[in-house]
């Protein structure tokens, strides 16, 4: 069982500092767990990271968060990483390739996993929160997040590309000592360099402007002060307060609410009026 984690040079969503994207750190945890399940945590068959780009300094954090080795395909700035990655992955043939489901503010476009799955002719399972060995030998059991806590279990056979959903378990802690011991292997790709698509957008993080806090009461409970400071807008304020309602009425209200937020399917038996 060979497990690869695609690592990209992301940016912190708030500070803009060059960091390992959170989803990829979560992917590492999934990879480490899967490695444990297959008993491949040490040596050459341990899960490894793969990065293509000019510099591996940003993704070196991954060494402290669970990976022992990163393979770095050295590419000049602005070159499309997909051909080099596809070539390298075709050669090393990992059974599982894990990636984040989207980019995080760096140079990455977020479609690399899809392009790679196409190039390698592998299935792509999106938004997984866990990967475990299947009951049958040679299969993998993946849990896909459908949002709001709903999961779909998928069993696949053969090599697969999977992208990781934010609902996956939080990343492992960064261990400085481990990062120190990890290795980065620099590789020269043989694929012909192709310029990546230029993306003519500039991204700046949105930041709420501070509110002037005026006349907030000094006493009272924390909840009262919060209400006074933030105003009574928000989801809670739009609700209806029913005092001692009839059970049927209460049930109707609850059902209506559940339909509104999409937990219960819309009422189809009711004739259209």
């Amino acid at each position: 069982m060979k497990i690869a984690v695609l690592l990209s040079a992301g940016r912190h969503p708030v500070s803009g500092a060059a960091v390992l994207p959170r989803l990829e750190a979560q992917a590492i945890r999934i990879a480490v767990r899967l490695g444990e399940a297959f008993g491949v945590l040490d040596g050459g068959s341990a899960p490894f990271g793969l990065h293509a780009g000019p510099d591996a300094a940003t993704v070196a954090d991954a060494l402290g968060q669970g990976l022992a080795r990163i393979e770095h395909l050295v590419l000049p700035e602005g070159v499309d990483p997909v051909p080099a990655l596809a070539e390298h992955l075709a050669a090393t043939a990992p059974d599982v390739i894990l990636a984040g489901r989207r980019g995080q503010g760096g140079g990455e476009s977020g479609i690399v996993p899809y392009a790679l799955a196409a190039a390698l002719d592998r299935p792509l399972i999106a938004d997984v929160v866990s990967v475990a060995p299947g009951d049958e030998a040679g299969t993998l059991r993946l849990d896909q997040s459908l949002g709001r806590g709903a999961l779909r279990r998928v069993v696949v056979r053969g090599p697969v590309v999977a992208t990781v959903h934010p609902d996956a378990p939080a990343s492992l802690a960064y261990a400085f000592g481990r990062a120190r011991r990890g290795t980065i292997v620099s590789l020269e790709p043989t694929a012909e360099p192709v310029a990546g698509p230029a993306i003519p957008v500039e991204e700046r993080p949105y930041r709420r402007r501070p509110k002037i806090v005026k006349g907030a009461p000094a006493g009272g409970s924390a909840a009262e002060r919060l209400k006074a400071a933030t105003g009574e807008s928000g989801a809670a304020a739009s609700g209806r307060l029913l005092v001692d309602p009839a059970p049927e009425e209460a049930a109707r209200e609850i059902l209506a609410y559940l339909r509104r937020v999409g937990v219960v399917a819309p009422d189809s038996t009711r004739p259209n009026s």
Binding site: G66, A173, A175, F176
Partner: peptide, 17 residues
């Protein structure tokens, strides 16, 4: 525990990261 093993308590990992 923290530097060599990354064994921070689960809830402390977020703030330290």
């Amino acid at each position: 525990q923290t530097l060599e093993r990354g064994a921070l308590p689960e809830k402390a990992i977020g703030p330290v990261t």
